[in-house]
Amino acid sequence: MISELLPERAADAARLEQLADAGKLPVVTVLGKFNHGKSTLLNELIGQGVFAVSDARQTMELDAFDQDGVRWLDAPGLDADVQTEDDRRALRGSWEEADIRLFVHSAREGELDGSEKALLAELAADAGHSRREALVVITQIEEVGEDTLADILRVIKEQTASLEVLPVSAIRYRRGREGGKQLLIEKSGMPALKDRIAQAVRLVFAARADERQMKGIVLRAHLASAGAGRYERLKTLSAERNRQMAHFKSEFGQIQANIHKRIREV
């Protein structure tokens, strides 16, 4: 019914359907452009090599993994598929299913481009009224110098405005864990990111309740408006049909009268 009456609100309806599942695990979706280190980041966050890592495009579906009461989603890289099917899957994972969005951008790419800024602006706006967290994660920081990284972070923070920016190195984190080097682990930024995600996860169910109520109110209002508009259009069409029927009957009656007159004359 919503798709028919409010096609522009189909995404809200799909999200509301997700929110209706009270037992659904909190969902953390990792999204960003192809080859920015999303899958590597995810593997280190969960401590297992679950998600495929390669210089070639590997993630073409919404890959999921459940661990310790959290569902992790690895979305296809934005702009990796010229047919945009990957983008549709990535956006489904970030808009319909996700409770927490980790937007990944590689430090080696420098500042954000136009499409990334536009998407982050949408995520920030959504976070403002739905309470769904959106975090900007700058990956592969080990590939640039400290001064360069500082400049990159300064520019990106200006570009993202209200969103929190967290620089990390999944490679340093893995090396630190494997070598028992606590300083390297801390320098990787991963413990801070994991703590921040855990904090967001704890707030998911309360945020869902608020979002469900808000989206329900908005959709009901739009449905009522659309229903009223459809009713008014129906009344207009009905009146026009009655006018045309009256005109037809008048014309038909005149034709009948002319025919009878000619018959009498004959």
Results as ranks from 00 to 15, higher is better:
residue 2 I to Y: 12
residue 3 S to F: 14
residue 3 S to M: 14
residue 9 R to E: 13
residue 12 D to K: 13
residue 17 E to I: 08
residue 18 Q to I: 08
residue 25 L to T: 03
residue 27 V to R: 02
residue 28 V to Q: 01
residue 31 L to Y: 03
residue 31 L to T: 15
residue 32 G to M: 02
residue 32 G to P: 00
residue 37 G to W: 01
residue 41 L to E: 01
residue 48 Q to E: 09
residue 53 V to W: 00
residue 54 S to Q: 08
residue 55 D to E: 12
residue 57 R to P: 04
residue 60 M to Y: 13
residue 61 E to P: 09
residue 62 L to C: 05
residue 64 A to L: 11
residue 68 D to I: 07
residue 69 G to F: 08
residue 71 R to C: 05
residue 74 D to I: 00
residue 74 D to C: 04
residue 76 P to L: 04
residue 77 G to L: 00
residue 77 G to T: 00
residue 78 L to N: 03
residue 80 A to R: 04
residue 80 A to N: 05
residue 83 Q to K: 06
residue 85 E to W: 14
residue 85 E to I: 15
residue 87 D to E: 05
residue 89 R to G: 07
residue 89 R to D: 05
residue 92 R to T: 12
residue 94 S to R: 10
residue 95 W to F: 15
residue 96 E to V: 14
residue 98 A to S: 03
residue 99 D to T: 10
residue 100 I to M: 05
residue 104 V to Y: 02
residue 106 S to T: 07
residue 107 A to H: 03
residue 109 E to A: 10
residue 109 E to G: 10
residue 109 E to I: 09
residue 111 E to P: 13
residue 111 E to Q: 15
residue 111 E to R: 14
residue 112 L to G: 05
residue 114 G to T: 13
residue 118 A to D: 07
residue 120 L to F: 02
residue 124 A to M: 00
residue 128 G to P: 06
residue 135 L to M: 06
residue 139 T to I: 03
residue 141 I to W: 06
residue 141 I to K: 06
residue 142 E to H: 00
residue 143 E to A: 12
residue 148 T to M: 08
residue 154 R to N: 08
residue 157 K to N: 06
residue 157 K to C: 11
residue 162 S to W: 03
residue 165 V to R: 04
residue 168 V to L: 01
residue 169 S to F: 02
residue 170 A to W: 03
residue 174 R to I: 00
residue 176 G to V: 03
residue 177 R to I: 06
residue 184 L to Y: 08
residue 184 L to N: 08
residue 188 S to I: 03
residue 189 G to E: 04
residue 193 L to E: 05
residue 197 I to E: 04
residue 197 I to T: 01
residue 201 V to H: 04
residue 201 V to Q: 01
residue 202 R to I: 06
residue 203 L to R: 15
residue 203 L to G: 11
residue 216 G to H: 05
residue 220 R to V: 14
residue 221 A to V: 12
residue 223 L to T: 07
residue 224 A to L: 10
residue 225 S to A: 15
residue 227 G to P: 10
residue 231 Y to V: 15
residue 231 Y to A: 15
residue 235 K to N: 13
residue 236 T to S: 14
residue 238 S to Q: 15
residue 238 S to M: 14
residue 240 E to Y: 10
residue 241 R to D: 12
residue 242 N to E: 13
residue 245 M to V: 13
residue 245 M to R: 13
residue 250 S to E: 07
residue 250 S to Y: 01
residue 253 G to H: 14
residue 255 I to W: 08
residue 255 I to S: 07
residue 255 I to E: 13
residue 258 N to H: 14
residue 259 I to H: 04
residue 262 R to N: 06
residue 263 I to M: 10
residue 263 I to F: 09
residue 264 R to M: 09
